[in-house]
Amino acid sequence: MASLLTVHDLTMRFGGVLALNGVGFDVRRGSVTALIGPNGAGKTTVFNCLTGFYRPSSGAIRLTDADGVSVDLIEILGGPFRRQDLRSPRAFGRRLYCKMFGGAALAARAGVVRTFQNIRLFKEMTAFENLLVAQRARVNNNLLAGLLSTRAYRDAEAEARERAWYWLDFFRLAEDGNRLAGELAYGRQRRLEIARAMCAGPRLLCLDEPAAGLNPNETRELSEWILSLRRGHGVTVCLIEHDMGLVMEISDQVVVLDHGQVIASGRPEKVRDNPVVLEAYLGVPEEEGR
């Protein structure tokens, strides 16, 4: 199976701190990949780079879809102008556009959609409206069409509503559709955030600690949902998670980060028995380690 995402030699510096140091991994299309590692290992930084919130100091991130069209997820952040840009007006225009409008929004339009560790819903809007907002790419954004309420606009809105109901049903949130998102119970907010991400039509769904704060029952439901998203909806999933039970159960590939470096990657059961991983998690006394 071909890779959907390739991350190559990703390095990120914050001032003097080297947060990521040469991180590289592949995500195959239709797989579930888990990023694990101790706190401060750089997992969320990798996520922020993937989704366009941070611009890495160096390295390459590339998203290739089934037709072979590929997007450079770093270029769209709008890097500094280069000399070559002056020769080609097209490249210049592209860079200018990315500089002005670039960043996470373009990454999302390319198909990388994420959720957040500390849930970020539109709290004063209803759950249903949260899902409508996410369908930016599919609704009719024409101002005049909306004001005049044209046929095309009404059709697009009806379709958007239908899709929103579908995902509310999928995550069993239908009865909360018209409640404010900020008023929902914690576990339901987590689900709503994933539903919202699905409404944005992701190719790569990035979940940042989706099971944090959920009880064992909810976690079990979550793992079923993730698996069925992959199976039934053709979504590739990349997640950060501390719940090893969940990670071992659902992932095809586990990437272990420590101190900003990939120390192991591969099938879950292989990674689990890797001594380097055990050392990173449990720590090994000085004399034995040397």
Binding site: F14, G15, N48, F53, F116
Partner: peptide, 8 residues
């Protein structure tokens, strides 16, 4: 001042 790093 130091440039602000956005907290995501």
């Amino acid at each position: 001042g130091r440039p602000e790093v956005e907290k995501v």
